[in-house]
Write a protein that binds this DNA or RNA. Structure first.
Lengths: 230, 230
DNA sequence: GCCACGACATGACAATAGTCAAGTTCATGC
DNA sequence: GCATGAACTTGACTATTGTCATGTCGTGGC
């Protein structure tokens, strides 16, 4: 059974936050709450979806194995984020696999429950679409980055997304392994290392999983500049 | 007003094909039917979505402009395909722009109509989710290609998707400009040219917009082989 | 028919990223 | 404490791709 703290996190997720209290209670009380160890599989590509997943703690990566065995990281989720909405409601196989990349707490909402509630109140469909749209948007943004930016620029954007303040300097912690960051940004770990050292010229220092950005505006200029201008 | 032939195409779209006849009739009779010339804009990034779009004839590209002015093609749609579902139902701005890349016929379903119908019958929400999921899936597949395959391999997959038969040889027409194919595959036109000439060694001949594939199985092997093995 | 322009092909070169190998650091188990 | 192994960094080299320049080929306008 779930702690109140976990329920509070679930309530804040994009999927649930705009639903009527009463429905949220129903969903939370029928949900399955599970802990995953680092490296543990949550579901596999081609498996049939039976639930929608909400991350309560830790980090989960979605990835795809190509026929050759190399893996492509599609997205990385953390506290308060949900995934699998569009798949769960249609009884189709997952297009990706999901794996815990740190110890995780994940809530699973059985899809039949969500479906039956949706037939009662169409507003739930809108909530699901909202969450799905945000995934769609994230994928589009990622595609644009891959097609229009160099590796170092993608790293710069990644760091900027970790910053809270939008000017001056700031210090951030890298949220997960550099290997995973590299995968998420579509490059090899070696290239990520080199991208980091290239960013030294625009005021970025990396030490372990700690990053110091001395000039956020300058870094943003770098990220958005034309690759051919450098 | 629409020809019956156009309505028939719309009925076959993923968005509408599984809906009850009665709802489809309502939607079709309130839809807006428009013709677009090559190069004409259908909507712009950041514009607020007011409709869902169904392509009846021609080709439409969705693309994103990066801050530097370079464009990244996100997807290309043709007869029977719909786009903008998840955006239209949420009153959020489009994350992409849409442009006709050939003379086009496009049907627009006003989103308030779709929303009100959805509140009557939640099944419509499922249909919209189905269409949205297929876009999500396509983006994930594209991401995987970009991250795990070389340019020539992406071109090989593109050609394979145009083939109907799955063994032996086949001949296909390239559906649109090579410039657009290049954009869709995340490369420059020059790189596409070179990818084509590289594919000569696996039995692919390109002449104008006509492609001859002498060995579909061999080409598939090539597309799925490890990039480092060549 | 001729011209102009855009799409496309190709060569030379530069920039970028992947590969392979060697070495460092750090967390873990014993 | 020490050994082990995984994550990470760095260097040298290669492969791939982008850039720029040039040339060809067709299509559409006149």
């Amino acid at each position: 059974m779930a702690h109140e703290a976990q329920k509070a996190i679930a309530r804040q997720s994009l999927l649930l936050k705009s639903l009527p209290e009463q429905h949220v209670d129903t969903l939370l009380s029928h949900a399955i709450w599970r802990r995953y160890d680092r490296g543990e599989t949550i579901f596999l590509q081609e498996e049939e979806a039976k639930a929608v997943h909400v991350v309560l703690a830790g980090w989960v990566k979605l990835f795809r194995m190509s026929p050759t065995g190399s893996e492509a990281v599609v997205s990385v989720f953390t506290r308060g984020e949900s995934f699998g909405e569009a798949v769960a409601l249609r009884n189709v196989p997952y297009p990706v696999s999901a794996e815990a990349v740190s110890p995780c707490e994940v809530m699973h909402i059985p899809s039949p429950l969500l479906l039956s509630l949706m037939r009662e109140d169409p507003e739930i469909g809108v909530s699901i679409l909202a969450a799905t749209f945000s995934h769609l948007h994230a994928l589009v943004a990622q595609l644009e980055q891959l097609k229009a930016q160099t590796g170092a620029q993608r790293v710069a954007e990644f760091l900027l997304n970790l910053c809270v303040n939008d000017k001056g300097g700031c210090e951030v912690e890298l949220p997960y392994d550099k290997m995973l960051i590299a995968g998420r940004l579509g490059m090899k770990p070696e290239s990520l290392s080199r991208a980091f050292s290239r960013l030294k010229t625009v005021g970025v220092r990396i030490n372990r999983n700690h990053a110091v950005i001395s000039d956020v505006v300058g870094l943003r200029d770098y990220a958005e500049s034309d690759p051919s201008e450098k």
